[in-house]
Amino acid sequence: MDSSSAIHGYVAEFEKAEQLVAATRRTRLAGYRVFDAYSPFPVHGLDEAMGHPRTILPWLVFLGGLAGGVGGYLLQYYPHVIDYPLNVGGRPLNSWPSFIPVTFEMTILGAALVAVFGMIILNGLPQHYHPIFNLERFERASQDRFFLCIETKDPKFNKTETREFLLELGASEVSECEE
């Protein structure tokens, strides 16, 4: 295992999205766990093929919206009721109907900002370095090719077996990616 410590994994390259979906499904069935698929656009059916849990992002967004809404209301309640109450013709200080528009806008703002920054943080972005970019051909992953990388961290990883397995999946090319 000495020489494999310097490599990130084996990368298979495919020409079609369907091939990637089929290959991912078979990789999982073969017992591999530490692998990733890369594609230039979201490929449908890939999440099931890879079988990983749903993201918690929607819950974070809900909390963000809640915080935005409550915060937005308090932002109006505090000045008009507590800090600077102004009696205009005996109308109630907490005139909630006129506080609705700003509360609504702040709800949307809170939810959307949490959504965007949540996605960025959950995805580990901004990411300064990722070993997969050491592969020269990988520049096509954002253009027109599909990649599947089985990483050396996978307990089932074995230099010869994994390479053969990937070739069997119909990869047009299998290469070694440095760490």
Partner: peptide, 25 residues
């Protein structure tokens, strides 16, 4: 591009985010 690599996990959250943003906008 923040080091975007088009990994499946990334795309998955990205698509959820896109739907949520559309729903909020």
């Amino acid at each position: 591009s923040l080091g975007w690599n088009g990994s499946l996990r990334t795309w998955n959250r990205y698509e959820v985010l896109y739907l949520l943003l559309a729903g909020l906008a």
